[in-house]
Design a protein around this nucleic acid. Structure first.
Length: 907
RNA sequence: GCCUGGGUGGCGGAAUUGGUAUACGCAGUCGACUUAAAAUCGAUCGCCCCUCGAGGGCUUGUGGGUUCGACUCCCACCCCGGGCACCA
């Protein structure tokens, strides 16, 4: 075989990339067509993959993400949409800074190098990006507007400064957001986080908890991602109830509010517990015999690592305060405790304890010999699974004799703690016997009347801590003035540019603090000497609005214009890793809602549809340098070409699931592409071109070197001109591509035509459900059929089959598909509308019908498409192997599923 | 513990509405081409039994159920991955 017959991606791919770059094929304009006239403008589609963090080189996960996104972008274009498909870089962040600490290389330089590498790779992969909209979040022209947004939030009271117990990473020497703490460890470096009391900047995301929750219903996201967000927001309905303490000074009672989801169990509250961090604990014991023990306990609790403290099976520890509070529903004085199972950061930092109906309170009561009073019946024999079936209203006998009454010797009553539903008991005559759910509402109403409590909702979500004591981030545009306090930097002075510094090493405060000349500034308000905020912003702030900037990337007067956003937002299809299910996706949603409230946006959700891709593993394990199992996309592209790499990563399995990389699998896909190339080459060589426009393969190098830059091929302005999807404006079926209704009708021609239309139908459906693996398999089947019939089918049918294969494969293997399509048709495949399956060719006049006896497959017969059920029965009954199984037996029932099967039930 | 996603040949996976289980690819086996190898092309390929052939039995984590028919629906359970986890 001559060299000419070899599939050579290294020759093909750069050629097409050069063409697309020179013609700026994937750029889209914002403006509406000037002379739109009556022409309807094509629908817009915003396809976006999460922007990469540029560190080193792209890894295989990037390849997967952008292969998925590019396939969708191409598909939408060829459906006639104007597609916005931009790219940028999430360029601030710790790795570049840590690298700088080690090597002294400025983060800007290492980041630039990495960005260059990403750009090279994305081009080498042939991803169809509108490069005219590119930016990095570290560029002043971008972060100027990040700062602007911060100031908007500040002015609206949504950004505020507060001292609080915050999570501190001792390794990275910075505070972290709650979301960045995973199992008590820093999400980035894995160091165990500490708690520090610091004054920091927060964004008031909790104001949006309810809307972040309810608006999930309106977006098309994977259910598990929605669930993760719901869990993270953690909404609980209940009541806030006041417990009064008069122990210190009866004239000046102290009211302690607690949050409970179970106000129906209030009568069972037998003690009261405060978190060790609660500010009143020491005051309550000051000067008493309990003070020493309490102090010791608190010290111990606070120095314990988060990990130790939150261990689930940890015994419940705590000490008595020697004080009491009044249970508001029955006036009982109940003892107060301090215990570390109560968390300061949730609710009010204090709880009422109902040991009979809460597992934790129960464990504490047992450990400290406290009374346990059952106030809800039910639960039955302990340990037995829920007896839903017997549904007896009367408490099972274990539940009844609980009436050792108040002083009750806390013993081990069976069935407790009971957390289910049931009628109230031992509470109050008004509520006893009432179902607990009804009682809950009644008790809350009564408390409300008495001014002792009210219905309340609590969220697990905390405000977003955005200060970072690090260098390589967006400066917070705030000035501190002795006289004026916290002063925002005036808008016209933005951006506050990140200064160059000598020493990046973090020392517990921002390295920026050492840039004395930068820190010193005149107060924008009074003009007196003041100093700049030296913390930078969490990089998740940068990435919470970048998708807006793509819509209007060069706007110098505003972060965006509403008109630009109106054309594209919200993102129609967002694509990224599931690891961002909470952090990035929650923050971006919050930003949209807040900015919409401030009148800057006209929509409330940024991402209408979300697709989360699975991880790529090697030998079943996550790829990592330490494991030595990293597959670098660059090496694969170099060896097999980008088309193979992209197709393989999509073919290996459903893209939303994890996939294990196999070198042999890559070979298989590469062989497939080579076969398509070769077969197409043969057919093109054999001539037989039918269309008027397609004399010879035009040799796909239409762009002379050096002609790049000038968009000469694209006439100015008009939004369609640079639009790949523009072809649909003047729809035209390639005249030379047979449709099956004309030309040859030999059996082989028909078979091939049918297979091609089957593949069109199959791939079209698969594209819409992200089933790229089966889409590629369908093209493989089409190629197999063409290959089988290559010596017998008419050339024209082969040409159609192969051109169709190329057309369908284009979203996954754009270079090869363009090459093959052009050779066969003389046309640019990306300018062709997505092919349509001819329904007539999806039908067959006869088909195989399955014959079952008692549900077991016994034979197959051919039947005419329009055969009646009676005819089908007769056909099957006559099948030899069916006869063998029904002869001499009694046919009880006959089931006919036209188009599928006949089943005889015999006895 | 709660919430999730999953479990199908030697391997990755397919089966979209309850209707032919194992598409497509990999690996394997045999053959063609070749001096040879690579590449390419063709055949074969779930397991077991019988075997001249035709055939028969079994098989989608386990055990039940519904149905003429179950990878698919229901009940119970086992295993693996992800998320949350003393949230009152």
């Amino acid at each position: 075989m001559s060299d000419e017959h070899r599939y050579d991606p290294q020759e093909i791919e750069p050629r097409w990339q050069a063409l697309w770059a020179a013609e700026r094929t994937w750029e889209v304009a914002n403006e509406a067509p000037e002379r739109a006239g009556s022409e309807r403008r094509p629908p817009a589609s915003y396809v976006l993959e999460m922007l990469p963090y540029p560190s080193g080189e792209p890894h295989i996960g990037h390849l997967k993400c952008y292969a998925v996104g590019d396939a969708i972008a191409h598909f939408h274009r060829r459906l006639g949409h104007r597609v916005l498909h931009p790219m940028g870089y999430d360029a601030f962040g710790l790795p570049a800074e840590n690298h700088a600490i080690k090597t002294g290389v400025h983060p800007r330089d290492s980041t630039a190098a990495s960005i260059a590498s990403f750009q090279r790779q994305f081009r080498a992969w042939g991803i169809s990006i509108d490069w005219s909209r590119e930016f990095g979040t570290h560029e002043p022209r971008y972060y100027r507007w990040t700062q602007w947004i911060f100031l908007q939030l500040f002015q609206a009271g949504l950004a505020y400064r507060k001292e609080a117990a915050v999570k501190w990473c001792p390794h990275d020497q910075t505070v972290l957001a709650n979301e960045q703490v995973v199992d008590g460890h820093c999400e980035r470096c894995g160091a165990e986080v500490e708690v520090r009391q610091l004054e920091q900047w927060f964004l008031r995301i909790t104001d949006y908890a309810e809307r972040l929750l309810t608006d999930l219903d309106g977006i098309e996201w994977p259910e598990h991602v929605k669930t993760m967000q719901r869990n993270w927001i953690g909404r609980s309905e209940g009541a806030e109830v006041t417990f009064r303490c008069t122990d210190l000074d009866p004239a000046q009672p102290i009211d302690y509010r607690v949050f409970t989801t179970r106000p129906d169990t209030l009568f069972g509250a037998t003690f009261f517990v405060m978190a060790p961090e609660h500010p009143d604990v020491l005051r309550l014991v000051a000067g008493t015999e309990h003070e020493a023990a309490v102090r010791e306990y608190i010290n111990h609790a606070l120095t314990e690592s988060g990990e130790e403290r939150s261990a689930v099976d940890k015994p419940k520890t705590g000490v008595a305060l020697g004080r009491t509070v009044t249970n508001p529903v029955n006036g009982e004085q109940i003892p107060m405790y301090v215990a570390d199972y109560v968390l300061m950061e949730y609710g009010t930092g204090a709880i009422m304890a109902v040991p009979a109906h809460d597992e934790r309170d129960h464990a504490f009561a047992r450990a400290h010999d406290l009374p346990i009073r059952r106030v809800i019946e039910g639960g039955a024999e302990d340990g037995l699974p829920e007896n839903a079936e017997d549904g007896l209203p009367e408490g099972a006998e274990e539940g009844l004799p609980e009436n050792a009454e108040d002083g009750l010797p806390n013993g081990a009553e069976q069935g407790l703690p009971y957390t289910g539903d049931g009628p109230l008991t031992s509470s109050d005559e008004r509520f006893d016997g009432m179902n607990n759910r009804a009682a809950l509402a009644a008790i809350v109403a009564w408390l409300d009347e008495q001014g002792k409590g009210h219905a309340s909702v609590n969220y697990r979500l905390r405000d977003w801590l955005v200060s970072r004591q690090r260098y390589w981030g967006c400066p917070i545009p705030i000035v501190y003035c002795e006289r004026c306090g916290i002063v925002p930097v005036p808008e016209e002075q933005l951006p506050v540019v990140l200064p160059d510094i000598e020493d990046y090493a973090p020392r517990g405060r921002s390295p920026l603090a050492a840039a004395a000349a930068w820190v010193a500034v005149d107060c924008p308000s009074c003009g007196e000497p003041a100093r700049r905020e030296t913390d930078t912003m969490d990089t998740f702030v940068d990435s919470s609005w970048y998708f807006l900037r793509y819509c209007d990337p060069t706007n110098e007067r505003a972060p965006w214009s509403k008109e630009a956003l109106a054309q594209w937002m919200p993102v129609d299809q967002y694509i990224g890793g599931v690891e961002h299910a909470i952090l990035h996706l929650l923050y971006a949603r919050f930003f949209c809602k807040a900015l919409a409230d401030l009148g800057h946006l006209d929509f409330k959700e940024p991402f209408q549809a979300l697709f989360t891709q699975g991880m790529v593993t090697k030998d079943g394990a996550k790829m990592s340098k330490s494991r030595g199992n990293v597959v670098s996309p660059a090496s694969i592209v170099e060896r097999y070409g980008a088309d193979t790499a992209r197709c393989y990563i999509l073919f290996v399995g459903p893209p939303d699931q994890d996939a294990d990389w196999s070198d042999d699998g890559v070979e298989g896909v590469h062989r497939f592409l080579g076969r398509l190339w070769r077969l197409a080459h043969e057919v093109a060589q054999a001539g037989g071109t039918a269309g008027p426009q397609t004399a010879e393969p035009s040799g796909a190098a239409p762009v002379a070197e050096g002609s790049g830059g000038e968009p000469h091929a694209a006439p100015p302005a008009g939004p369609y001109t640079a639009l790949p999807g523009a072809a649909h404006v003047r729809p035209r079926r390639s005249a030379h591509v047979p449709t099956g209704t004309d030309t040859d009708t030999s059996d082989d021609a028909l078979a091939l035509l049918r297979k091609a239309h089957w593949a069109i139908d199959k791939v079209s459906g698969d594209m819409r459900r992200f089933a790229f693996n089966t889409a590629i398999a369908a093209v493989m089947e089409l190629l197999n059929e063409a290959s089988r019939l290559r010596d017998t089918a008419p050339l024209e049918a082969q040409r159609f089959a192969l051109a169709t294969a190329a057309s369908l494969l284009f979203p996954f293997a754009p270079h090869l598909a363009s090459e093959v399509y052009e050779r066969l048709t003389g046309e640019r495949v990306w300018e062709q509308p997505w092919p349509q399956a001819d329904p007539a060719l999806l039908e067959r006049e006869s088909y195989e019908i399955v014959c079952q006896v008692n549900g077991k497959l016994r034979d197959r017969v051919r039947a005419a498409r329009d055969a009646s059920p009676e005819e089908l029965k007769e056909l099957c009954r006559a099948a030899p192997n069916v006869r063998a199984h029904i002869d001499g037996k009694h046919v009880v029932k006959e089931i006919v599923v036209p188009g599928k099967l006949v089943n005889f039930v015999v006895r």
